[in-house]
Amino acid sequence: MSEEQIKSLEADFDARIARDEKIEPKDWMPEKYRKTHIRQISQHAHSEIVGMLPEGNWITRAPSLRRKVALLAKVQDEAGHGLYLYSACETLGVSRDELYEQLHSGKAKYSSIFNYPTLTWADMGAIGWLVDGAAIINQVPLCSTSFGPYARAMVRVCKEESFHQRQGFEIMYKLCNGTPEQKEMAQDALNRWWWPSLMMLGPTDAESVHTEQSMKWKLKRKTNDELRQQFIDQTVPQADILGLKIPDTDLKWNEETGHYNFGEIQWDEFWQVVKGHGPCNKERLNARKGAWEKGAWVRDAAMAYAEKQSNKKIEKVV
């Protein structure tokens, strides 16, 4: 194809997205669109899969059967969300194995928040309330993104996600209305998860390299800073209801802007964790790789069994 032809195809393509038309897998698309979507959707899928690990840590130690079934259901949802997203990603012509390989080799990233440890039961509350809360803010606009399979997966994810946040808040609410030790445990969890949750919404607009292109493709509808402000504005009153104090001395309601002012985020820490030096990066990746490698014989056995059965069917027909 000549350069001119590609330019004209690209102009048509951009116009379709501007008209809010959806792009489906077999449609022509610029190579950069395909690559960017593979990167973002797979990163999203990896985050769901790795995101099961910090919570899996507490399934066997949940304080009651009610809490245990809820946590199990939440973790199972995360596996499901990862699978919806991997499938959406595969429609762009990348195989599941390639995607796993990118995760296991460290080439692909996942949300850095999952590299923090879950030290107490209150962390299950804080993760549901804050981490899932921030994720919802990130994900809701993606339900109307331009790539059809991604948008459809996100509609399913968002429908299921609100139970996650509510179960987390309920855990916090119970602890905050329990003994002083329990309330202290909730405050400690908030202290540790607050800043990483703010970082989870991505680098500041000035530092974010992909924002402009992603806005054009509707992979993003609001900038990272707008999403972060929205998260803070809606979460502070929730902390008040719990009677917990957000660990930010600069946090203050600003009558003029109608938003909360907040303190400076330690971006050095964020980049350290992204680069692999967070408290649990190695542990998470090892757990993930271990599960994949130790499951290899099961996958092979299932395939061998399927082949044997299908050969038997053929023999019968003959």
Partner: peptide, 8 residues
Amino acid sequence: FGSLHAAD
């Protein structure tokens, strides 16, 4: 509804 991988 979507797709998935399975042996059979």
